[in-house]
Design a protein around this nucleic acid. Structure first.
Ligand code: MN
Ligand code: MN
Ligand code: ZN
Ligand code: ZN
Lengths: 171, 171
DNA sequence: TCGGTAATGAAAACAGTTTTCGTAATCCAA
DNA sequence: TTGGATTACGAAAACTGTTTTCATTACCGA
């Protein structure tokens, strides 16, 4: 059970690894290295959590205001194709992206009050899914499990909720 | 484990129950009974599976070609609010709706080859989710679990795939 | 450095859905 | 039963998130 802490320091070594891996992917595909792509991925891998295109663009523009959202979309697609990033959709109508998480494959719990997203992984759950697929003569490629609900710790939840509202106001 | 059979006969009594329940919902909310809404819900509850707005509109127009998609959207929202229908999104970008299913709450297996959607329900899986939420001090309101993959029965899968392509061609 | 290829950014297009707005239908009170 | 406030309808416009287009610029191997 892991909740992302947006205030934890960036692991610079991990960021470098990701940047290198992406550069190799670009090479392998015969694509070109560009200033914009470097800015975008470097920005992306320094962010934590489940980042929307909008959120990423705002940060990217701080480094280079001339970068447009078409390039951000295109670069995110490349990141997904490279396997370094996964796309998520939690039902609010917009795509979110996550790179290095605390755990590799994982599922999500989403608080509908404060927006908190916790990640979890449980081998018994995974095994049970496999078992059910087997029973149904079905082969699983991937799955998504999302638990929607609310934090039981109302105080902490409310604090996060207010922080979020303040941030939305400021934007 | 239940796969919807689109050729099974319509349960007329069940359809009537749903129609009555919707009429009561409309009353309760102080809304008006209309020819269009009646046509739409009666058409919807006679269809099987996970129906897109487009699919429903096509059928509705057979009964009354003057009904537009705005009314179909609006009526589907009412059906969802009434609790008689659930909205699903399986990642192909469009909303699908399901009314009376073989099982009440259930999760889905989706074949990426032929589009087949199987429904399943497993109490151990549900209990395990509850247990994990408990551990994380989280209260679940609802969840979604979708297994994406492929049928192991390649012959049956291929037949469905071809039927689907033929239908798409004809439309 | 040249030249072919790939990438960029602004704007237009797109898909699914929601809203608007003028007209028509519903239904309750009189 | 009808008048009239209220709700619903349908066509079209608007909206949202995303993708594509197209003219221009940047990359990079020869
Ligand atoms: Mn995650
Ligand atoms: Mn279903
Ligand atoms: Zn919360
Ligand atoms: Zn299949």
């Amino acid at each position: 059970m892991v909740t992302i802490n947006p205030n934890s320091p960036v692991d610079e070594d991990l960021v470098k690894d990701k940047e290198t891996a992406f550069a190799e992917f670009i090479q392998r595909r015969g694509l070109k290295t560009t200033r914009q792509r470097n800015t975008i991925i470097s920005t992306f891998f320094r962010l934590k959590g489940h980042i929307s295109v909008e959120e990423l663009l705002v940060e990217v523009k701080k480094a280079n205001p001339r970068i447009g959202y078409a390039t951000v979309y295109r670069t995110l697609h490349l990141l997904v194709e490279s396997g370094l990033v996964e796309e998520r959709r939690f039902g609010d109508g917009l795509a979110r992206y996550e790179g290095h998480s605390a755990v590799e494959h994982h599922d999500h719990m989403i608080c509908l009050e404060c927006g908190m997203i916790s990640e979890f992984y449980n081998p018994r759950l995974e095994a049970l899914q496999e078992h059910l697929a087997e029973e149904n003569n079905f082969e699983i490629y991937r799955h998504r499990l999302e638990l929607y609900g609310a934090c039981k710790d109302k105080a902490a939840c409310d604090t996060r909720k207010k922080q979020k509202e303040a941030r939305a106001q400021g934007a």
